[in-house]
Design a protein around this nucleic acid. Structure first.
Ligand SMILES: [Mn+2]
Ligand SMILES: [Mn+2]
Ligand SMILES: [Mn+2]
Ligand SMILES: [Mn+2]
Lengths: 227, 227
DNA sequence: CTAATATGTTAGAGTCTTCTAACAAATATT
DNA sequence: AATATTTGTTAGAAGACTCTAACATATTAG
């Protein structure tokens, strides 16, 4: 028997649109059709018609030629997908021994599995984690999320001691790069110097007395003050 | 970015057809279009066109009005899906604390996840189990499967001592029924008597001195001789 | 303000998966 | 063997998701 998705729930495709819209909405309310196209790697007309579809389902607010935004219903639906994604990533790292650079691809698929049982059990087995392996907060069962208030390392000045708490993005390449520098979440870091020319930072942490990171990298290292 | 399936692999729908065909093929080589329709809960013409599609992909052997069968390529593809299904079921039971009656629905979805990493890790974490929670054998990485030679309990006579090794089918209802009788895999059973009228059996096992099971149930209890 | 550019929409089409209605072949029954 | 029933096929259509080409609107730059 073909296990068919209930008709009242979003298809896998619709879920990916909602999630992309949700990610693009952090820090702003409205999103362009073109931003969505780029994020999802589909054409503009494809997004256009999907947006109309999502509008009829009450998941997005949209008027011709205007930018779009999620409705409350859409926001919650998206947050619940993000919840499944992040719980999965954390489970893969914590309970299955995967590296933080390996889990996104798998979570991208598992996030569409329809089974509260599965994800609630993951949650329970991990004792209800608050963040995923990249430091991003995990929405609760109701789709509520506590936005973290970490700041990019690039904002601080020489001498400051901080702790790496999260990442601005978590592409596989970036994560592998951090692995190669032995930099992981929770690491305490001191800013040794800042190059005025290009904003690159020389950092000291653990058994790395002096490692240089570009400004771009430092903007994606989200930290909290220490001491 | 929409995580799209590689074009050279079977779609989720195609995978479900292959798997159904595979299940229907146990003990016989050829399968009817109508059997497949019934198993997948789709119409006859739908199966007919999908079968043509699978034929062009070299996954099934088929001629108009003749019964169909999997090619070697199709057989292997199906076995690898079954592998993912059964590894998942075992992982859910062994590592996540699910009951054997809860895992099929979840595995039905996870079996379509494209990630050798995930399933090989499950395999490793469980130390390479040979069977799933219902006693069905798990195909290896090459799609090879060792058909188990267990016999239905209904074939034995009074006085025989056996051990429950597998199930002929594993519907949720059947599994819940067995739960209610506290009958699980590995349980040693003695046949106390057989009712000649309807073939029902009175069994003794663990702290159940005398439990009656219908012939239909006993045909689905696959056992091995003990002592 | 006008022209150039960027962004968004419509139209039309193709693939995949499914359906129902109508017809054809094979099998079973009398 | 003739008829009835079961099984399988064809035809035609629909919905979901995607594309490209052409056109429309909005924004940016001179
Ligand atoms: Mn991720
Ligand atoms: Mn996804
Ligand atoms: Mn199963
Ligand atoms: Mn399935």
């Amino acid at each position: 028997m073909l296990s068919q998705r209930r008709k009242d729930m979003a298809s896998q495709t619709e879920e990916n649109y909602l999630k992309a819209l949700y990610s693009l909405s952090v820090g702003k309310i409205e999103v362009n059709i073109s931003e969505l196209s780029a994020a999802l790697n589909v054409s503009n007309p494809t997004v256009n018609s999907m947006v109309k579809n999502l509008k009829t389902k009450g998941l997005v607010k949209y008027e011709k030629y205007k930018p779009l935004s999620l409705t409350e219903k859409g926001r919650k639906a998206a947050a619940l997908i993000v919840r499944k994604h992040r719980l999965t990533e954390m489970f893969l790292v914590e309970k299955m021994g995967f590296g933080w650079e390996e889990v996104h691809e798998i979570a991208e698929q598992l996030e569409h599995v329809n089974s509260s049982k599965l994800f609630d059990r993951m949650d329970e087995l991990m004792d209800f984690p608050l963040v995923d392996p990249h430091g991003s907060p995990i929405p609760d069962r109701n789709g509520n999320i506590s936005e973290s208030a970490y700041e990019p390392l690039s904002k601080f000045s020489v001498g400051r001691k901080v702790k790496l708490a999260a990442l601005g993005h978590s592409s596989t390449e970036f994560l592998k790069y951090l692995n190669s520098r032995e930099l992981s979440l929770g690491t305490e870091i001191e800013i040794k110097s800042i190059e005025p020319y290009d904003g690159s930072m020389v950092l000291s942490y653990q058994n790395h007395a002096s490692e240089t990171f570009t400004k771009a990298v430092c903007e994606s290292l989200l930290v909290e003050r220490v001491g």
